[in-house]
Write a protein that binds this DNA or RNA. Structure first.
Lengths: 191, 191
DNA sequence: CTCATATGAGATAAAATAGTCTCAAATGAG
DNA sequence: CTCATTTGAGACTATTTTATCTCATATGAG
């Protein structure tokens, strides 16, 4: 699965560029037709079909790539090392640029078509969950909030940041800071 | 638009039940076909068409109802009264059960079809934005986080709660408390 | 420049979804 | 119970989306 991260020839590079542009659009508009995806990626329908034989092939490629990138990011973050808040920071910084891909992994409508990838997707959740548990055990994260809930709020806040960047409402360079501040410290002013 | 909240005859009651069930499914799976919506709502395709003449009619009804319910909830919350944190609490408590409808209002893929409702949707954002601004001016909400970002994180956290309830991962009765705690106070343990 | 390859536009076919309709059965009120 | 209304199943039609293909043009490497 790390094949998705190997150095590539030009055509493969282009294919991934198209795939990433398609992912963006599909994150914003899951109902987009292939004609709309072609338009968004600035290629003709025929060319889109040359790169991805079918809608299913496109969605599969998307899922595989999302899994590979998120898994690699998680591994790079070494979530089991260092204090939990610092690890969480590394995680958030890594995930924001992958917000659309991360969003796809979290949504069930893709998995209906690709149940074979479900186990791999669930495997991406394990290190995050363990990090939260570790933080609670260490006393650095609140233990009164259920782990499951912390995961939801983390995941949705990361996607909110991706969306806010995409919409042009926050600057990319500010995003991680904003997520960290609001998620970790909350929005209430300190006394 | 408050017509959507008037006492109803039995058939209209049933129609709204169907509409609400369809809204749930479409929040989880925007690509659901009418056949899938019919199955989810436990009626036949023919009956679905009897209640909503077309997919467009269904989506329009959904948007109109979502707008009516969210607008009414916002009005009930009297966001300009009382301290900002208390008003925020009332807001969150009101919005969670409307999470699927709120999510729809925030997403662009519906408005492509119904640009006429865009102004009304944007009007629902104004009292929320004003509340945040008021909180910042009063010093109860952090002024270092942009208003736009606070709105994103609020909206996505509310939807996260709706989703978590729908998935069976948190209890409905706990949801508002969890949102308030994590959003307002953050997830870092207090020293 | 040449030439191999990639691409777009648009026509066409196939598949899926949306929409329409009929009639028997189910439902609910009186 | 009767009877008016609603519903489901499924056949059928219409529309949209997906997929396929051709050929002229564009592109890029040498």
């Amino acid at each position: 699965m790390n094949d998705a991260l190997q150095p590539l020839n030009l055509k493969e590079e282009r294919r991934l560029q198209l795939l990433d542009a398609a992912t963006e659009l599909l994150a914003k508009r899951p109902t987009a037709s292939l004609a709309e995806i072609a338009e968004h990626t600035r290629i003709s329908k025929a060319t889109l079909h040359r790169y991805f034989a079918s809608r299913d092939a496109l969605l599969t490629a998307l899922a595989v790539r999302a899994l590979a990138l998120v898994s690699a990011a998680l591994a790079d973050c070494r979530l089991s090392e260092g204090a939990a808040p610092a690890a969480l920071r590394r995680l958030i910084e890594a995930l924001i640029p992958l917000g659309d891909k991360f969003y796809f992994l979290l949504n069930e409508h893709l998995w209906n078509v690709h149940p074979d990838l479900v186990a791999a997707e669930q495997a991406t959740e394990v290190p995050i969950m363990q990090l939260i548990q570790r933080g609670q055990a260490e006393g650095s994260l609140r233990a009164d909030l259920p782990v499951a809930w912390i995961m939801y709020t983390l995941e949705f806040t990361v996607f909110a940041a991706w969306q806010a960047i995409y919409d042009g409402n926050i600057a990319r360079r500010d995003a991680a800071h904003l997520v960290l501040e609001s998620l970790l410290g909350g929005i209430i002013a300190k006394a």
